[in-house]
Computed example of a mutant assay.
Amino acid sequence: MSQTAESVHARAREAVSALEDRLWNVSLALHREPETAYEEHRAARLLTGELERDGFELERGVAGLPTAFVARTGSVSGGGPCVAVLMEYDALPSLGHACGHNLIASAGLGAALAVRAALGDFEGSLLAVGTPAEERGGGKVAQVAAGLFDGVDAALMFHPGVHDWTWAPLTASAQVRVGFHGRAAHPTGSPTEGIDALGALIQLFNTLGVLSRRLPAGSHVHGIVTDGGRATNVVPAYAEGMFGLRGATTSALEDLVDELRSCARGVASATRTGVEVADVGGRYEHFRDNEVLSGLFAGHLGRAGIRLSEPEPGVYLGSSDFGNVSTLVPGTHPWVAIMGTEGSGHTYEFAEAAAGPRARRVMTAAAEALACTAIDVLLRSDVRDRAWARLRAKAAEGL
């Protein structure tokens, strides 16, 4: 690596160090006032205000999402390489920031501010992208569809967790609503006139339980009853369930959705009900790690004393709409621990850890590593070429 790049890395680390108190205050502000999917108005105002304060050009409400934004800095001509640093800031209902998105936002903010401070005027563009509704709905799905990542050479973010892993094994996922239509009747006075929609839905759950025993690793289906009728003395004319489906790959997810549709139609035929099967929100594709970028991030993070390793085989960490971004452009999504493996995300304990001293150290280290990785992409054509080559090779292999 050239001396010039090394000196820029040093300036970026110095910038993050100078910003640490400011970044931590942003993180704590988000943590104190958690907002769920598509309601992150305070978070968006706070983050855009910080970026605007340091000279970024802001575009709010991108991709038709009121709480999404893009902040831009770099050459006026718009030519040269382009890097996007992604920020998530939605919280979980009842649990607050039990997935640590306050840290994702503050580390992404720190990286963006540090790159601008370290590079000054440069040929290329840096985008700080606000991505709402990762936990439910998929803001990045809408942003990909709107072309927001067209022309981007690398998409960078990190995620807090209970593992120190170079990348996150994230599955493809979908939310599917199944509704059965029957016929209402009095269950005692005219039982033969009724067609029990709730009974059909229950039968679907039983059928899916049998199906689950033969699913491949990484594939899961789980559901809840969202409408089971209104009174016990009326045969339910309508019943509805919501099902979450996951597959280790996007292809495996598509197969599982087809299986669900087949099961629902079979149950409808057997119970003489009508059935509707519909996707809810956008599907999340599986994450495609770019080893070029994740290797650079891991190397930079190691300067802070945090060593990343490969994920444990066969372990999956859920799903993210970042998977959709990673199919389009080279991306990295490392996992950095803010508590030990005795803990778990999406718990009150994890939410508490996301505002603790270890979280602050991780936020600062991740901001530095993200900034330095972004600088590598912006300054080194060989990094960009290798990252794109790796993405194209994975696409050709169907990975």
Rank of each mutant, 00 (worst) to 15 (best):
G274R: 07
V280S: 06
V280F: 08
R265L: 10
V210E: 05
A217I: 01
A264K: 10
S219R: 14
A145I: 13
Q203D: 13
A145G: 11
F180N: 01
G266F: 02
A154M: 06
A264V: 03
R213C: 07
S219Y: 00
L211I: 06
A237N: 11
A270S: 15
S269G: 09
V235K: 02
F149N: 05
V267Y: 00
F243P: 00
G244Y: 13
M157V: 06
T273P: 04
L215V: 09
A252D: 14
L211D: 04
L198A: 05
T249V: 12
H186A: 04
D255T: 05
S219N: 10
T192M: 10
N233P: 13
E254W: 03
T207I: 05
T171N: 09
A268G: 03
I202S: 05
A142K: 12
M157I: 03
A248C: 05
G241V: 14
D196Y: 03
T192S: 13
H222E: 02
T249H: 08
R136D: 10
G223S: 12
L253R: 05
D164I: 10
A252G: 08
V162S: 05
V235W: 04
M157W: 07
Q143L: 14
R183S: 10
T250M: 05
Q203I: 01
G199C: 08
H159G: 06
T188Y: 05
H222F: 10
G138I: 05
A185R: 09
G228M: 01
F158V: 12
L256M: 08
R136H: 07
A217M: 07
T273V: 04
A237T: 13
V210S: 09
G189K: 09
E193M: 13
T188M: 08
P169C: 08
G179Q: 15
L148K: 01
A268F: 05
T207P: 03
Q203K: 11
A217E: 15
V210F: 09
D258M: 02
N206W: 10
F180P: 04
H159D: 06
P160H: 09
A237W: 10
L148V: 15
S219P: 01
G151F: 08
M242E: 13
P191K: 01
A270D: 07
V235Q: 04
L211T: 12
L245C: 09
R177F: 01
R272D: 13
R261N: 12
K140F: 02
K140V: 02
R283Q: 12
T171W: 00
T188S: 13
T207R: 04
G182P: 11
C263A: 15
A146Y: 06
L256E: 03
L260K: 00
L253G: 07
P216Q: 03
T226V: 15
T192Q: 14
L198P: 04
I224D: 00
L198Q: 04
F149W: 05
L201N: 03
G266L: 00
A252I: 01
V176P: 07
R265Q: 12
P187I: 09
P216D: 02
G147W: 11
P187S: 04
G139E: 09
A252Q: 12
R261D: 14
G147F: 12
P169N: 14
V277I: 14
C263M: 11
A172F: 05
V178E: 00
G151H: 07
G194F: 11
T226E: 06
E254P: 00
G151E: 11
V176S: 06
A270V: 09
H181R: 15
G282C: 07
A217P: 08
A146L: 02
E135K: 01
